[in-house]
Nucleic acid binder design. Structure first.
Length: 420
RNA sequence: GCGGGUGUAGCUCAGUGGUUAGAGCGCCUGACUGUGACUCAGGAAGUCGGGGGUUCAAGUCCCCUCAUCCGCCCCA
């Protein structure tokens, strides 16, 4: 094999593209009902945009970005996440002027992270997501979580877990970090230097550890929720009750801390056990400080990003595949006279919106029918000697094998009717 | 970035260091002079992931490398 797709990337083949299209359409239909409008941002941005928003000590910025210099010596980076570019565009184009709140969504945007690939973890993957800008009320958080949950429902995916937490504002996090670090100090001394450095850089990470020693040590660790300022605490409590009223099940999960610095207060992830080590399907939360960090006015905002590859993997594992659209008609000719009519008849069908194809290699009648079957056509339309003479066509429904002879003039109408 | 598994036909996989590398499915042709899916017969299809080494002899053993999968890390 001389060339392969680069490590961690993959082609999306015709046999699977319909699942992508179905998912994207279902998402767009859903969010349109909530008043979201799609936005598309460039595939790369100034590197600084991500450093400023994700945080210069974040895993993404320190280890995972595809950064490069262009011929004009600009520092650019392939999008490692979807939110910062959308917020940049919001500021750049003064979308606040449309009146707040502003509801934006993005669909199947490519996302790049230099990581070691595994099932469900790729160097290029695709995300869809929503940003709800300009609302501080926990109703906004609830709407975002509800949309995430309903997107999975629309894809036929069940058995998911919504993990919810609040990490508070800057002051809370600072105080809590110190408390946590102090609590973990005895264990940290014996840890692998690299793990230890990571833990000290972002102590909240320790909460997510799978190391039994760490889990044991943190059994009695202080809880973030106890450190929340009164305002954060009441926001979190209201969010919980709004979700409960909406009958959206969730579990409060102190280990959910998120990897990007821009989050404040509400954070959440949606998990599935269907993907081995990669259990997170969707992550999001509130980022009230993000716009300010980008030089804009302080604006409360909340959103999520959802991995499409992972969603589709879970969808497949749950046997919830959508039905693949069929080509309506495969036209078949038995002789030269029939062949001449094929093209004009196919054109007629297409003008009415039906899909029609035919053999171009002069195959035998038998081979043509076989081909019709193989490409998944619904009907084989046969133009033999008799049909040409009588200006009719034999329409064979491939699934049942039933045949009907109808006038060529009524073919489009007949197929359209049967198709619906 | 760390540890481990796996790479043989389009797909799923057999193959003890020893002739010209196989099977099932799929594909093409025919049995079938106007009919796919079933049956039968035939056919095409391989850089045994790539490179190097050991050996009289390597798909098989060793080293390197690429890809993929599993775990860690991190996340979608």
């Amino acid at each position: 094999m001389p060339y392969q797709a680069p490590r961690g990337t993959h082609d999306i083949l015709p046999s699977e593209i319909y699942r992508w299209q179905a998912a994207e359409q279902a998402f767009l239909r859903l969010v349109t009902q909530y008043g979201y409008r799609e936005i598309r941002t460039p595939i790369f941005e100034d590197t600084e945009l991500f450093v400023r928003t994700s945080g210069d000590t974040s895993e993404v910025v320190t280890k995972q970005m595809y950064s490069f210099k262009d011929k004009g010596d600009r520092d650019l980076t392939l999008k490692p996440e979807g939110t910062a570019p959308v917020m940049r565009a919001y500021l750049e184009h003064r979308l606040a002027g449309d009146g707040q709140p502003v509801r934006l969504c993005y669909v199947a945007t490519p996302v790049f992270r230099y990581e070691r690939p595994q099932k469900g973890r790729y160097r290029q993957h695709h995300q869809l997501g929503c940003e709800l800008i300009g609302v501080a009320s926990p109703e906004a958080d609830a709407e975002i979580i509800e949309i995430a949950v309903r997107t999975y429902q629309a894809l036929g995916i069940g058995s998911l877990q919504v993990k919810l937490n609040s990490i508070g504002r800057a002051a809370t996090r600072e105080a809590y970090r110190e408390a946590l670090l102090a609590h973990a100090q005895p264990v940290l001394k014996d840890m692998d230097p690299e793990d230890r450095a990571r833990a000290e850089r972002n102590p909240l990470r320790m909460l997510d550890s799978k190391d039994p020693v760490m889990i044991e040590a943190l059994q009695k660790a202080p809880k973030v929720l106890d450190y929340l300022e009164p305002e954060s605490k009441s926001t979190f409590d209201s969010l919980c009750s709004i979700l409960a009223e909406a009958e959206i099940p969730f579990v409060i999960s102190p280990e959910i801390v998120r990897g990007l610095d821009y989050y404040t207060d509400t954070v959440f992830e949606v998990h599935s056990t269907a993907l081995g080590a990669q259990t997170a399907l969707c992550g999001g939360g509130r980022y009230d400080g993000l716009l300010k960090a980008l030089g804009g006015p302080p604006t409360p905002s909340v959103g999520f990003g959802m991995g499409l590859e992972r969603a589709l993997l879970v969808q497949e594992s749950q046997g919830a595949l959508p039905t693949e659209p069929q080509v309506a008609a495969f036209l078949i000719a038995a002789d030269e006279a029939g062949r001449a009519r094929l093209r004009s008849l196919a054109a007629e069908l297409r003008t009415t919106g039906l899909a029609a194809t035919y053999d171009m290699d002069g195959r035998s009648l038998k081979a043509q029918i076989k081909l019709a079957d193989r490409i998944g056509a619904q009907y084989a339309v046969i133009l033999g000697e008799t049909e040409i003479a009588e200006q009719t066509a034999t329409v064979k429904e491939l699934l049942s094998g039933n045949q009907t002879v109808i006038p060529q003039s009524q073919l489009a109408q007949y197929l359209a009717k049967e198709d619906s």
